[in-house]
Write a protein that binds this DNA or RNA. Structure first.
Lengths: 366, 366
DNA sequence: GTCGTTGCTGGTAGCGCTGTCAACGTTCCT
DNA sequence: AGGAACGTTGACAGCGCTACCAGCAACGAC
């Protein structure tokens, strides 16, 4: 009787089937599509499986069915807070589904991304989540040819491979600058680090808003390819001040930089917001409790991850979402650092997200 | 000729073997143990594989060989900065090896951990990384019975399942308090959130140090089960101040709380460090650029992750490390927030790590 | 010259599961 | 009543790879 045991001592489907008095294939169906069984057999297989403590062998399943239940996720950084929020959303959504997450880190390199994509695709993932819209031509071709659903996250653009969820970094930056204009600021600097495509588009938005107002000046822009940090924010701000002493505001490409600028202002005894206004990007948790509280552009990172994974899983299961491109929008959260003579947290300028409208191109916000 | 193609259009090992003019099994060996082949066949298989763009089918390999090349990682949180550093180390170390990482989030629940462990183990991982030493009895039994190497990370304790890498949170907390004593502080508060086992041990260390000095007072301790945040740091500090107005220092269980305390001090115009000294835990990047710069206990998170994965992979490949328990130590980085009348960044108090000595029990530091 | 020994190679037989298709019993329609 | 249609079940044949063991040549020791 023990002869049927697998070498590893594990219970196989065949044992479950035998105990339940059905054929192995019927037992197999129980796990994949229980509705297809009669109630009697269903309960028998169920109790047999429980009694034996059966756990399916995923490798065998993958081999036989020619597909895996793995969702591949490609993100550029594990360190960045932004991605940890997105990831949390993805993991939360995948939990309870039968799909597991396979994560890889492209380190902001599209070549690395291409390599990883090739690796992933070879294992026939059930679905794929990739960051951004700036893939190599080769990657793009592989994605188009892939026979699984794909979601691009973090931003939206004109030409989705399949599904897409994010927001317009360009519009968000324009909104941040517009807010500073409203507050009467004119000499608005830009501080950016890493300069990945999304930060670049924030810069583009900033530049266009400044040009529209006739206020653009190349000296107001300080960027570096160095990875971002709070300390770096202080350093870049120092550079900016040296170039442009009569600065009256800084728009930071992310909140870490903004915090660094705030500290540097305190160090130099520059009054915020009286002398210089500060606006960050992402609205990390600490922005609301800094002194003064820091204005930032809120982005829905957790929701982005969660929705991306949910959409993907639905699509894998054959229920494609009615809209393939989802704009989650953004919101300028106005706080003390940019609103002299105003109280904290006023009604905010928001992007497309509220209406979740479909967009193909960067749309002007209201 | 196309008849041998698999349905999925993929190249199989058999095709490679055919092109190379060897048997499939020889081709298989090429990928697992190239040294076993004669140089002639080796090069022939190699070029055939490259020419055909062969990618092995992992599911088939796993099924046939009865083992996977997956390293399971169980961590309690994806949000926490601390774990993102550890994870980065793990991913960095796994890159280039043939092992892939399967990550799961226990959300600080040992029951959830047990469930995930059962799931992982059923797939016969090549190795396992688990967080901490506080598993359920059932989990512990499963880990002991698992036939793969296991590394426990984040802390060290008396009774490793297999390998272990971390440091003593208890000693680190004692060192932080000792530093405050040296600075002449007496009424030292403790602020903690989440209160997971490691934070609890930091509290234990604090309590023991305070008791040793005859300074312990229950009113000095403010904790909550709520997840940590900067804002929460301010709130807990407010509570603490209400209970104990003549506080002269705060030891925070992590840096987010410390930053919140700093902001709250600024809001209340409490001078740091003149009225109140602040010490954090982990030494996140921003601590060095806050104003004043914030003292913290540096922990080697990235290195911990990297070393854990490296040790694990070595052990999987049959090269067990000479020491199974590795104490990475800690270091009190003294900065302005706790060192009145001193300049920044003096020589620091450090834990066991420098010597990487083996420890079985929390050892007193010097 | 015979017998081990070593180094390399190949054949056989699965690993545990699922896709496909045929077959069965039942119900419902005409 | 006959047959179509449906729902349910099972047999068969692999999925692509590797473990195991046998075979073979080349070589050296006696």
């Amino acid at each position: 009787m023990g002869r049927k045991r697998t070498k590893s001592g594990k219970i196989r489907l065949a044992e479950v089937a035998e105990l339940a008095g059905v054929s192995p294939i019927t037992a197999s169906r129980f796990f994949r599509n229980p509705e297809a069984l009669s109630v009697a057999k269903r309960t028998r297989v169920e109790s047999a499986a429980r009694e034996l403590g059966y756990v399916p062998n995923l490798a065998a399943r993958a081999l036989a069915s020619q597909r895996t239940e793995v969702i591949g996720v490609l993100i550029p950084s594990l360190t960045n807070n932004v991605f940890s929020d997105v990831l949390r959303g993805i993991y939360d959504a995948s939990e309870g589904s039968r799909y597991s997450i396979q994560l890889s880190n492209t380190r902001y390199s599209i070549l690395q991304e291409e390599k990883l994509l090739r690796l992933f695709l070879a294992q026939k993932p059930a679905g794929l989540i990739v960051t951004g819209i700036d893939q190599t031509t080769e990657s793009r071709a592989m994605l188009e040819a892939a026979d699984c659903p794909i979601v691009q996250i973090m931003e939206i653009g004109p030409d989705p491979v399949d599904m897409m969820i994010g927001f317009s970094h360009y519009d968000a930056a324009r909104a941040a600058v517009a807010h500073l204009f409203e507050q009467g600021r004119r000499r608005i600097g830009f501080v950016g680090a890493r300069m990945d495509p999304r930060v670049q588009r924030r810069l583009d938005g900033y530049v266009s808003a400044m040009k529209d107002a006739g206020l653009f000046d190349q000296r107001l822009v300080v960027t570096t390819a160095t990875p971002t940090s709070v300390t770096l924010g202080g350093a870049l701000f120092t550079d900016l001040l040296a170039r442009e002493p009569d600065l009256d505001a800084v728009f930071c490409a992310n909140d870490d930089l903004a915090l660094g600028v705030l500290f540097e202002c305190r160090r130099r005894e520059i009054a915020v917001p009286d002398q210089i206004a500060i606006v960050g990007f992402n609205d990390l948790e600490f922005m609301a409790s800094a002194v003064p509280t820091l204005t930032s552009v809120r982005t829905n990172r957790y929701e982005m991850g969660r929705t991306a994974a949910t959409m993907l899983i639905e699509a894998i299961d054959g229920r494609r979402p009615e809209q393939a491109v989802l704009d989650l929008g953004f919101k300028v959260i106005e706080r003390q650092s940019s609103t002299s003579r105003h109280s904290d947290s006023r009604p905010a300028v928001s992007g497309a997200g509220a209406a979740n409208k479909m967009v193909a191109l960067p749309t002007g916000h209201d």
